Amino acid sequence: MNSNKLLTGAGIGALMLGMSTAAFAANWRYAIEEYEGDVQDVFAQEFKRYVEENSDHNVQVYRFGELGESDDMMEQLQNGILQFFNQSPGFTGSLIPSAQIFFVPYLLPTDMQTVLEFFDESKAINEMFPKLYAEHGIELLKMYPEGEMVITTDEPIKTVEDFQNKKIRIMTNPLLAETYNAFGATPTPLPWGEVYGGLQTGILDGQENPIFWIESGKLYEVSPHLTFTGHGWFTTALLANQDFYEGLSKENKQLVDAATEAAYDLTTEHIQGLAEESLNKIKKNCDKCTFTHLDDQQVAKLKKKAPQVEKAFVEMAGETGKKLLKQFNADLEAVKSDKE
């Protein structure tokens, strides 16, 4: 991003000032990893609207940069400074290795409706994941997709060989590193606040993100060659501090659950067509940008790399990861069968 906002003493001071010593504070604090108008912000603002229209509570939304990087906000959630936090499983992978399953390439389909149906109906998503988060004092309220991942680079990528030695920025996620190693690139972990500058100065050769984030963050200005590989989706999750959530009254717990469902419904509607809208904005604003959809032959080459990443996932996540992967595949088959 152009602006690299840092966590300051003043920011933490303002946050602490807004805290109540009561566990059931009427001022609920909710942090997201994105900026105004982005997908997580759409979710958060609808959650806020629902809570405030149906109770006397207030929801204070903190956008990216106001409270630090993702790891900082997760620590604040676990310590009870935040009541709610939207975090991608990509960042949660170091805490919950099984959450890295979303970075096994070509596991999820590319069709929007199939993906949405999977998130609605998946036992892995809705039954297994909440138990995994609960082991770390976190209440998983909802997982949802934001958009298909797109890779941007300093040069056009037309073949798998073009990935060779490209320094691609990744989240701090061991399995995502395995994916880009398998693709032939050089995975380069870097905090989000440093990505725009890293691309601009050549520290990085590229990065991956959903197209709306590439457009809103103007990453195309410094990484103008977009490659569509169909290898994965960006997924995020609304989390709550478990002590806070379990300590809510029955009415307030129902309020939080209803607000979550309202936000989910609005957001899943919002993301439909968002990729095309964002792509058109980039095309309008960037004469030097190129847009490459890898052909079937090149995609097949990348898909051949997926089993080694899947194997690495099982090694990292152990028996739990093996069970989760089995359920993931069963859920995906069920969704596909429904469409036949």
Rank of each mutant, 00 (worst) to 15 (best):
F234S: 15
D338R: 10
N280T: 08
T227Y: 01
E46Y: 01
K323C: 10
E75T: 15
Q164A: 12
F119M: 07
V309G: 02
E139Y: 03
F234Q: 11
L226G: 00
A262F: 09
D120L: 03
K131S: 06
M143A: 07
D205L: 01
Q100S: 10
V61P: 01
I32E: 01
L332N: 12
I157C: 03
L274C: 12
A237M: 07
N79D: 14
L274K: 05
D331F: 04
N285Y: 01
V115S: 02
S249D: 11
Q87H: 13
G197V: 08
N86W: 01
V299S: 08
G93K: 06
H57D: 13
L255E: 08
G68I: 10
I32K: 01
H136F: 03
K301H: 05
L107A: 05
S98Q: 11
P145R: 08
S122Q: 05
T8F: 02
P105Y: 05
Q83V: 04
I170A: 05
A26Q: 14
K283H: 08
Q242M: 12
F84K: 12
Q207W: 11
L140V: 04
G9S: 14
I168R: 01
D111E: 10
G65S: 15
A262E: 15
F129I: 02
E139K: 11
I138Q: 09
T8M: 06
G65C: 14
L332E: 07
A306C: 12
F102Q: 07
L67W: 06
M171Q: 14
I151R: 01
E69C: 06
T268R: 12
F119Y: 13
Y245L: 07
A240L: 02
A44D: 06
L204F: 02
K281H: 13
R169W: 10
D243N: 12
T229R: 07
M112R: 14
K301E: 08
M143C: 05
L239M: 15
T8K: 03
E121V: 09
L108G: 07
Y62L: 13
G197P: 05
A237F: 00
T186N: 14
I203F: 13
Y264M: 07
H293N: 15
C286G: 09
E148C: 06
F103H: 14
H225D: 07
G13Y: 08
E276P: 01
T153V: 02
I12E: 00
K304P: 05
Q113K: 15
L132W: 10
K166H: 10
S55W: 04
G232E: 09
R63C: 02
W233F: 14
P97V: 07
E277Y: 11
G80S: 06
K303D: 12
K131L: 14
N280G: 10
P224R: 06
H270P: 05
V299H: 03
E148N: 08
P130A: 09
E148L: 15
N252K: 09
G247M: 11
